[in-house]
Design a protein around this nucleic acid. Structure first.
Lengths: 160, 160
DNA sequence: AGTGAAACGACCGTAGA
DNA sequence: TCTACGGTCGTTTCACT
Protein backbone atom coordinates (compact mmCIF):
# COMPACT_ATOMS: atom_id res chain seq x y z
CA UNK A 1 0.00 0.00 0.00
CA UNK A 2 1.78 3.02 -1.11
CA UNK A 3 0.63 5.42 -3.74
CA UNK A 4 0.88 8.65 -1.86
CA UNK A 5 3.92 10.53 -0.86
CA UNK A 6 7.06 9.50 0.75
CA UNK A 7 7.25 6.77 3.32
CA UNK A 8 7.38 8.07 6.91
CA UNK A 9 10.94 6.76 7.10
CA UNK A 10 12.30 4.01 9.31
CA UNK A 11 15.82 4.08 10.66
CA UNK A 12 18.62 5.95 8.96
CA UNK A 13 20.46 3.55 6.70
CA UNK A 14 24.06 3.54 5.62
CA UNK A 15 24.31 2.23 2.10
CA UNK A 16 27.29 0.30 0.83
CA UNK A 17 28.27 0.18 -2.82
CA UNK A 18 26.38 -3.04 -3.41
CA UNK A 19 23.10 -1.57 -2.23
CA UNK A 20 23.68 1.49 -4.35
CA UNK A 21 24.20 -0.74 -7.36
CA UNK A 22 21.03 -2.64 -6.58
CA UNK A 23 19.11 0.62 -6.43
CA UNK A 24 20.59 1.70 -9.73
CA UNK A 25 19.46 -1.54 -11.31
CA UNK A 26 15.93 -1.01 -10.10
CA UNK A 27 15.98 2.61 -11.16
CA UNK A 28 16.57 1.62 -14.73
CA UNK A 29 13.97 -1.15 -14.55
CA UNK A 30 11.84 -1.75 -11.51
CA UNK A 31 10.78 -5.16 -12.76
CA UNK A 32 14.24 -6.58 -13.25
CA UNK A 33 14.46 -9.94 -11.51
CA UNK A 34 16.44 -10.37 -8.32
CA UNK A 35 18.43 -13.13 -10.00
CA UNK A 36 19.49 -10.83 -12.80
CA UNK A 37 20.39 -8.05 -10.37
CA UNK A 38 22.35 -10.58 -8.38
CA UNK A 39 24.48 -11.40 -11.41
CA UNK A 40 25.12 -7.72 -12.03
CA UNK A 41 26.19 -6.93 -8.48
CA UNK A 42 27.81 -10.23 -7.56
CA UNK A 43 25.35 -11.51 -4.98
CA UNK A 44 22.96 -14.41 -4.74
CA UNK A 45 19.33 -13.91 -5.60
CA UNK A 46 18.24 -14.35 -1.98
CA UNK A 47 20.71 -11.75 -0.75
CA UNK A 48 19.47 -9.21 -3.27
CA UNK A 49 15.90 -9.86 -2.26
CA UNK A 50 16.70 -9.36 1.43
CA UNK A 51 18.43 -6.09 0.74
CA UNK A 52 15.61 -4.79 -1.42
CA UNK A 53 13.13 -5.66 1.29
CA UNK A 54 15.15 -3.81 3.92
CA UNK A 55 15.67 -0.79 1.73
CA UNK A 56 11.96 -0.67 1.05
CA UNK A 57 10.95 -1.10 4.68
CA UNK A 58 13.41 1.60 5.70
CA UNK A 59 11.81 3.99 3.22
CA UNK A 60 15.04 4.47 1.32
CA UNK A 61 13.52 3.24 -1.88
CA UNK A 62 10.29 2.03 -3.37
CA UNK A 63 9.44 0.41 -6.67
CA UNK A 64 6.40 2.03 -8.25
CA UNK A 65 4.84 2.85 -11.58
CA UNK A 66 5.22 6.45 -12.64
CA UNK A 67 3.05 7.84 -15.38
CA UNK A 68 3.25 10.61 -17.94
CA UNK A 69 0.45 13.14 -17.43
CA UNK A 70 0.59 14.26 -21.07
CA UNK A 71 -0.06 10.73 -22.29
CA UNK A 72 -3.03 10.51 -19.99
CA UNK A 73 -4.72 13.63 -21.21
CA UNK A 74 -3.44 16.12 -18.67
CA UNK A 75 -2.05 18.75 -20.94
CA UNK A 76 -1.61 21.60 -18.47
CA UNK A 77 0.86 21.49 -15.66
CA UNK A 78 1.96 24.40 -13.57
CA UNK A 79 3.94 25.28 -10.49
CA UNK A 80 2.16 27.63 -8.16
CA UNK A 81 4.14 29.80 -5.79
CA UNK A 82 2.14 30.76 -2.74
CA UNK A 83 2.72 33.52 -0.22
CA UNK A 84 0.90 32.61 2.97
CA UNK A 85 -0.17 33.93 6.31
CA UNK A 86 -0.49 31.76 9.39
CA UNK A 87 0.70 28.17 9.70
CA UNK A 88 1.92 27.01 6.32
CA UNK A 89 1.62 23.39 7.39
CA UNK A 90 -2.12 23.69 7.78
CA UNK A 91 -2.38 25.28 4.38
CA UNK A 92 -0.14 22.62 2.89
CA UNK A 93 -2.47 19.94 4.19
CA UNK A 94 -5.41 21.58 2.48
CA UNK A 95 -3.50 21.87 -0.77
CA UNK A 96 -2.38 18.29 -0.59
CA UNK A 97 -5.99 17.20 -0.28
CA UNK A 98 -6.78 18.55 -3.74
CA UNK A 99 -6.46 15.71 -6.27
CA UNK A 100 -5.00 17.89 -9.00
CA UNK A 101 -2.16 18.90 -6.68
CA UNK A 102 0.60 16.32 -6.98
CA UNK A 103 3.42 18.07 -5.19
CA UNK A 104 3.56 20.38 -2.19
CA UNK A 105 6.69 21.68 -0.53
CA UNK A 106 7.17 24.26 2.21
CA UNK A 107 9.97 26.65 1.32
CA UNK A 108 12.03 29.52 2.60
CA UNK A 109 12.19 32.43 0.19
CA UNK A 110 9.75 34.75 -1.49
CA UNK A 111 7.21 31.92 -1.60
CA UNK A 112 6.20 29.94 1.44
CA UNK A 113 4.78 27.04 -0.50
CA UNK A 114 5.35 25.58 -3.93
CA UNK A 115 2.59 23.39 -5.31
CA UNK A 116 2.62 21.54 -8.61
CA UNK A 117 -0.70 20.93 -10.28
CA UNK A 118 -1.78 18.64 -13.09
CA UNK A 119 -4.81 19.71 -15.13
CA UNK A 120 -6.57 18.60 -18.26
CA UNK A 121 -6.68 22.06 -19.77
CA UNK A 122 -6.50 25.78 -19.05
CA UNK A 123 -10.10 25.83 -17.90
CA UNK A 124 -9.43 23.35 -15.16
CA UNK A 125 -6.32 25.23 -14.13
CA UNK A 126 -8.20 28.51 -13.92
CA UNK A 127 -10.99 26.99 -11.88
CA UNK A 128 -8.49 25.33 -9.60
CA UNK A 129 -6.60 28.54 -9.03
CA UNK A 130 -9.51 30.94 -8.64
CA UNK A 131 -12.09 28.81 -6.92
CA UNK A 132 -10.00 26.44 -4.87
CA UNK A 133 -6.47 27.50 -4.14
CA UNK A 134 -6.90 31.27 -3.86
CA UNK A 135 -9.95 30.77 -1.69
CA UNK A 136 -8.10 28.80 0.95
CA UNK A 137 -7.61 30.63 4.19
CA UNK A 138 -4.04 31.73 4.63
CA UNK A 139 -3.29 32.27 0.94
CA UNK A 140 -2.09 35.85 0.64
CA UNK A 141 -1.09 35.74 -3.01
CA UNK A 142 -0.09 33.30 -5.70
CA UNK A 143 2.09 33.28 -8.76
CA UNK A 144 1.62 30.71 -11.49
CA UNK A 145 4.30 29.22 -13.70
CA UNK A 146 2.71 27.35 -16.55
CA UNK A 147 4.86 24.52 -17.88
CA UNK A 148 5.96 24.94 -21.44
CA UNK A 149 8.26 21.97 -21.56
CA UNK A 150 9.27 19.40 -19.00
CA UNK A 151 12.91 18.99 -19.74
CA UNK A 152 14.37 16.66 -17.19
CA UNK A 153 12.72 14.53 -14.60
CA UNK A 154 14.77 12.18 -12.49
CA UNK A 155 13.50 9.70 -10.01
CA UNK A 156 16.89 8.58 -8.88
CA UNK A 157 17.47 11.25 -6.34
CA UNK A 158 20.32 10.56 -4.14
CA UNK A 159 22.39 8.09 -6.02
CA UNK A 160 23.01 10.53 -8.88
CA UNK B 1 17.08 1.05 -20.02
CA UNK B 2 15.53 4.11 -18.64
CA UNK B 3 16.76 6.00 -15.66
CA UNK B 4 16.56 9.48 -16.99
CA UNK B 5 13.55 11.56 -17.64
CA UNK B 6 10.38 10.84 -19.37
CA UNK B 7 10.17 8.56 -22.35
CA UNK B 8 10.05 10.42 -25.69
CA UNK B 9 6.51 9.12 -26.06
CA UNK B 10 5.10 6.78 -28.68
CA UNK B 11 1.57 7.07 -29.98
CA UNK B 12 -1.22 8.65 -28.00
CA UNK B 13 -3.05 5.96 -26.10
CA UNK B 14 -6.64 5.80 -25.02
CA UNK B 15 -6.89 4.00 -21.72
CA UNK B 16 -9.85 1.91 -20.72
CA UNK B 17 -10.80 1.24 -17.13
CA UNK B 18 -8.92 -2.03 -17.03
CA UNK B 19 -5.64 -0.41 -18.01
CA UNK B 20 -6.22 2.30 -15.45
CA UNK B 21 -6.73 -0.35 -12.80
CA UNK B 22 -3.56 -2.12 -13.87
CA UNK B 23 -1.64 1.14 -13.55
CA UNK B 24 -3.11 1.71 -10.10
CA UNK B 25 -1.99 -1.73 -9.02
CA UNK B 26 1.54 -1.03 -10.16
CA UNK B 27 1.50 2.40 -8.57
CA UNK B 28 0.92 0.89 -5.20
CA UNK B 29 3.49 -1.85 -5.78
CA UNK B 30 5.63 -1.96 -8.86
CA UNK B 31 6.69 -5.54 -8.26
CA UNK B 32 3.26 -7.07 -7.91
CA UNK B 33 3.03 -10.13 -10.13
CA UNK B 34 1.04 -10.08 -13.35
CA UNK B 35 -0.98 -13.03 -12.10
CA UNK B 36 -2.00 -11.19 -8.96
CA UNK B 37 -2.88 -8.06 -10.92
CA UNK B 38 -4.88 -10.25 -13.27
CA UNK B 39 -6.99 -11.51 -10.39
CA UNK B 40 -7.63 -7.97 -9.21
CA UNK B 41 -8.71 -6.67 -12.59
CA UNK B 42 -10.31 -9.82 -14.00
CA UNK B 43 -7.85 -10.67 -16.75
CA UNK B 44 -5.46 -13.50 -17.47
CA UNK B 45 -1.81 -13.18 -16.59
CA UNK B 46 -0.82 -13.02 -20.27
CA UNK B 47 -3.28 -10.24 -21.01
CA UNK B 48 -1.98 -8.14 -18.13
CA UNK B 49 1.56 -8.72 -19.30
CA UNK B 50 0.72 -7.60 -22.82
CA UNK B 51 -0.99 -4.46 -21.60
CA UNK B 52 1.85 -3.53 -19.29
CA UNK B 53 4.30 -4.00 -22.13
CA UNK B 54 2.29 -1.76 -24.43
CA UNK B 55 1.78 0.91 -21.80
CA UNK B 56 5.49 0.90 -21.12
CA UNK B 57 6.48 0.99 -24.78
CA UNK B 58 4.03 3.82 -25.40
CA UNK B 59 5.66 5.80 -22.60
CA UNK B 60 2.42 6.04 -20.65
CA UNK B 61 3.96 4.35 -17.65
CA UNK B 62 7.19 2.94 -16.38
CA UNK B 63 8.03 0.89 -13.34
CA UNK B 64 11.06 2.27 -11.55
CA UNK B 65 12.64 2.61 -8.14
CA UNK B 66 12.27 6.02 -6.55
CA UNK B 67 14.45 6.99 -3.65
CA UNK B 68 14.27 9.38 -0.73
CA UNK B 69 17.11 11.93 -0.89
CA UNK B 70 16.98 12.56 2.86
CA UNK B 71 17.55 8.90 3.61
CA UNK B 72 20.54 8.93 1.30
CA UNK B 73 22.29 11.85 2.94
CA UNK B 74 21.05 14.67 0.74
CA UNK B 75 19.72 17.01 3.34
CA UNK B 76 19.34 20.15 1.24
CA UNK B 77 16.86 20.43 -1.55
CA UNK B 78 15.83 23.62 -3.27
CA UNK B 79 13.87 24.91 -6.21
CA UNK B 80 15.70 27.52 -8.21
CA UNK B 81 13.75 30.02 -10.27
CA UNK B 82 15.78 31.33 -13.17
CA UNK B 83 15.25 34.39 -15.31
CA UNK B 84 17.03 33.87 -18.57
CA UNK B 85 18.16 35.61 -21.72
CA UNK B 86 18.42 33.84 -25.07
CA UNK B 87 17.20 30.35 -25.83
CA UNK B 88 15.96 28.78 -22.63
CA UNK B 89 16.20 25.31 -24.16
CA UNK B 90 19.94 25.62 -24.52
CA UNK B 91 20.23 26.75 -20.94
CA UNK B 92 17.94 23.95 -19.80
CA UNK B 93 20.23 21.42 -21.45
CA UNK B 94 23.18 22.79 -19.54
CA UNK B 95 21.28 22.69 -16.28
CA UNK B 96 20.09 19.17 -16.93
CA UNK B 97 23.69 18.08 -17.38
CA UNK B 98 24.49 18.97 -13.76
CA UNK B 99 24.11 15.83 -11.64
CA UNK B 100 22.66 17.66 -8.64
CA UNK B 101 19.85 19.00 -10.81
CA UNK B 102 17.06 16.46 -10.85
CA UNK B 103 14.26 18.48 -12.41
CA UNK B 104 14.17 21.14 -15.08
CA UNK B 105 11.07 22.69 -16.55
CA UNK B 106 10.64 25.61 -18.93
CA UNK B 107 7.89 27.90 -17.74
CA UNK B 108 5.87 30.96 -18.62
CA UNK B 109 5.75 33.52 -15.84
CA UNK B 110 8.23 35.56 -13.89
CA UNK B 111 10.72 32.71 -14.15
CA UNK B 112 11.72 31.12 -17.42
CA UNK B 113 13.08 27.97 -15.88
CA UNK B 114 12.48 26.10 -12.66
CA UNK B 115 15.19 23.70 -11.58
CA UNK B 116 15.12 21.45 -8.54
CA UNK B 117 18.44 20.57 -6.97
CA UNK B 118 19.47 17.91 -4.48
CA UNK B 119 22.51 18.65 -2.32
CA UNK B 120 24.25 17.14 0.64
CA UNK B 121 24.39 20.38 2.58
CA UNK B 122 24.31 24.16 2.35
CA UNK B 123 27.92 24.29 1.22
CA UNK B 124 27.19 22.20 -1.81
CA UNK B 125 24.11 24.25 -2.59
CA UNK B 126 26.07 27.49 -2.37
CA UNK B 127 28.81 26.20 -4.60
CA UNK B 128 26.31 24.89 -7.07
CA UNK B 129 24.48 28.19 -7.23
CA UNK B 130 27.41 30.55 -7.30
CA UNK B 131 29.97 28.62 -9.28
CA UNK B 132 27.83 26.57 -11.60
CA UNK B 133 24.32 27.79 -12.20
CA UNK B 134 24.81 31.53 -12.01
CA UNK B 135 27.87 31.27 -14.22
CA UNK B 136 25.99 29.69 -17.08
CA UNK B 137 25.54 31.94 -20.07
CA UNK B 138 21.99 33.13 -20.34
CA UNK B 139 21.24 33.23 -16.63
CA UNK B 140 20.07 36.74 -15.87
CA UNK B 141 19.07 36.18 -12.26
CA UNK B 142 18.03 33.42 -9.90
CA UNK B 143 15.86 33.04 -6.88
CA UNK B 144 16.28 30.12 -4.50
CA UNK B 145 13.58 28.42 -2.51
CA UNK B 146 15.13 26.17 0.07
CA UNK B 147 12.93 23.24 1.02
CA UNK B 148 11.83 23.20 4.61
CA UNK B 149 9.48 20.27 4.35
CA UNK B 150 8.41 18.07 1.50
CA UNK B 151 4.76 17.63 2.16
CA UNK B 152 3.26 15.68 -0.66
CA UNK B 153 4.85 13.85 -3.51
CA UNK B 154 2.77 11.82 -5.90
CA UNK B 155 3.99 9.64 -8.67
CA UNK B 156 0.59 8.71 -9.90
CA UNK B 157 0.01 11.68 -12.09
CA UNK B 158 -2.81 11.33 -14.36
CA UNK B 159 -4.91 8.65 -12.83
CA UNK B 160 -5.63 10.66 -9.71
C1' DA C 1 24.58 -11.41 6.19
C1' DG C 2 25.46 -14.68 3.12
C1' DT C 3 24.93 -19.43 0.16
C1' DG C 4 22.63 -23.56 -1.92
C1' DA C 5 18.90 -26.68 -3.01
C1' DA C 6 14.17 -28.18 -3.74
C1' DA C 7 9.28 -26.99 -4.25
C1' DC C 8 6.50 -23.75 -5.91
C1' DG C 9 4.85 -20.00 -8.62
C1' DA C 10 5.63 -16.50 -12.18
C1' DC C 11 6.87 -15.48 -16.76
C1' DC C 12 7.16 -16.10 -21.70
C1' DG C 13 6.20 -17.83 -26.31
C1' DT C 14 3.01 -19.87 -29.14
C1' DA C 15 -1.42 -21.58 -30.72
C1' DG C 16 -6.05 -20.85 -31.21
C1' DA C 17 -10.77 -18.44 -30.46
C1' DT D 1 -7.26 -8.69 -27.80
C1' DC D 2 -8.08 -12.38 -25.13
C1' DT D 3 -7.45 -17.38 -23.04
C1' DA D 4 -4.94 -21.79 -22.60
C1' DC D 5 -1.01 -24.33 -21.94
C1' DG D 6 3.94 -26.08 -21.53
C1' DG D 7 8.73 -25.02 -20.96
C1' DT D 8 11.82 -22.14 -18.61
C1' DC D 9 13.27 -19.25 -15.21
C1' DG D 10 12.51 -16.63 -10.88
C1' DT D 11 11.06 -16.79 -6.13
C1' DT D 12 10.44 -18.73 -1.64
C1' DT D 13 11.62 -21.32 2.25
C1' DC D 14 14.78 -23.55 4.99
C1' DA D 15 18.91 -25.65 6.61
C1' DC D 16 23.55 -24.36 6.91
C1' DT D 17 27.78 -21.26 7.24
Amino acid sequence: MNSQGRVPAGKPVQLDDVSKKIIEQLQSDGRRSYAEIGKAVGLSEAAVRQRVQKLTEAGVMQVVAVTDPMQLGFYRQAMIGIRATGDTRVLADQLAAIPAVDYVVLTAGSFDILAEVVCEDDDELLTLLNLKIRNLEGVASTETFVYLKLHKQLYNWGTR
